[in-house]
């Protein structure tokens, strides 16, 4: 089959469709740069979605739990080897993704006799100032997007992402405390999961709306902050369980 280029292209297209179907019900994850640090948030049904990678780096992912574990271990192995052979300051997400993770994801995706990674993830690296924060979205095929500061969303349906990202940018003041910003992220999560439109204004005076709380029933909200200012080298601080349905 692989001797014929057309068959290979067809196989890759089928593969893409297959992976997208597999992660279609995945719960979106978010990363947002705040003055206090980078907030990562995901909503799971028991398995973890937000993880520490290294001193200033963390990830949030949706996809198959076994693939999330594989990717997590790839990143942690690479970060700690780099820190040991060079220095902790030399570990950064740009290099972890572009020289470590992305080529492995691409190879797995294009090797049609090998199992692809069923994953969509966000990586974050906290810096001195929010504008210097690095946020990266990595897809199952190894494609990645890097941006400095702001908001990033990884969702099962990529077409939903631009409007939600814009809404979050408009709705989240970087000065917000992480706990408050988490509630705004949960509104976006609810809209994405229920495929509803986003509210025009954010009103959280009475907490989360009933529909959102119902949607969260039986689920675990997992959030973590990569602290911008800390006496500790490791900046990852779990904020969960924020809310359990």
């Amino acid at each position: 089959m692989t001797e014929e280029p057309f068959r290979w292209l067809e196989a890759i297209a089928n593969r893409r469709e297959y992976v997208q179907q597999q992660i279609a019900t995945g719960s979106p994850v978010f990363a947002v740069s705040l003055d206090a640090g980078i907030l990562l948030l995901g909503v799971g049904s028991g398995q973890s979605k937000v993880f520490e990678v290294f001193d200033r780096q963390a990830m949030a992912a949706l996809g198959h739990p076994a693939d999330i574990e594989r990717v997590r271990n790839i990143l942690i192995d690479a970060a700690h080897l780099e820190a040991f052979t060079r220095a902790a300051a030399d570990v950064n997400v740009r290099r972890l993704v572009s020289f470590g993770l992305s080529p492995q994801l691409k190879q797995s995706f294009e090797q049609i006799f090998q199992a692809p990674f069923m994953i969509n993830l966000l990586l974050a690296e906290v810096a001195e100032k929010p504008a210097q924060d690095v946020l990266v979205q990595v897809s199952f095929d190894g494609g990645f997007v890097i941006q400095h500061g702001g908001v990033m969303v990884a969702a099962a349906k990529p077409e939903q992402v631009p409007s939600v990202t814009k809404w979050l940018k408009d709705s989240i003041d970087p000065k917000l405390p992480p706990e408050k910003a988490s509630l705004v992220l949960l509104l976006a999560w609810d809209a994405l999961v229920r495929n509803q439109s986003l509210p025009e204004t954010v009103d959280l005076t009475n907490g989360l709306p009933l529909a959102c709380r119902e949607q969260l029933t039986g689920k675990v909200v997992e959030a973590a902050l990569l602290e911008r200012q800390s006496v500790n080298l490791a900046r990852y601080v779990p904020l969960t369980p924020l809310l359990t349905g």
Binding site: F51, F54, I76, H80, A83, F84, A234
Partner: peptide, 16 residues
């Protein structure tokens, strides 16, 4: 000391 520092952090992060 360096091996211990990285080993302990590696274990904590990889094994949760």
């Amino acid at each position: 000391a360096r091996v211990m520092q990285v080993s302990f952090a590696y274990y904590r992060r990889s094994q949760l």
